[in-house]
């Protein structure tokens, strides 16, 4: 099943996904991120531009990302990278997401009941 950011779990973790990608790749441009997500998840997850750019702009606004622009293949390419603050925040966000997912996993695997 293919998921995208309309899935509430993905929507809530989009910033963390972006920050994790940047932690692994030091700097990336928008299209590269969407392609990386598709490749890593073997096309199971797709991030649309309508979700990616607002999330990137929000992270920039919060001072977690910084940009550099370069001319590549005849057009302006904007690269995003984590700031110092962003690097610290990435660790916190990834840990929080892992904890949340583990808790959900435990709940899903348990026999739910009142007994």
């Amino acid at each position: 099943m293919k998921t995208n950011e309309s899935n509430p779990v993905i929507k809530g973790s989009l910033s963390t996904i972006i920050m994790k990608l940047l932690e692994n790749n030091s700097r990336m441009y928008g299209y590269e991120m969407t392609k990386a997500v598709r490749e890593i998840t073997q096309n199971k997850m797709n991030i649309t531009e309508a979700a990616l750019y607002p999330a990137l702009h929000k992270l920039l606004d919060e001072g977690l990302l910084e940009t550099t622009t370069e001319q590549v293949d005849g057009r302006m390419r904007k690269y995003y990278a984590l700031t110092k603050k962003g690097k610290k925040e990435t660790i916190v966000k990834i840990d929080a997401l892992k904890d949340a997912l583990e808790s959900v996993q435990i709940l899903l695997n348990s026999k739910l009941g009142n007994e």
Binding site: Y53, H57, L60
Partner: peptide, 10 residues
């Protein structure tokens, strides 16, 4: 439109 709007907002 969403890209343009969020860019302007930022």
């Amino acid at each position: 439109a969403p890209i343009a709007a969020s860019f302007t907002k930022q």
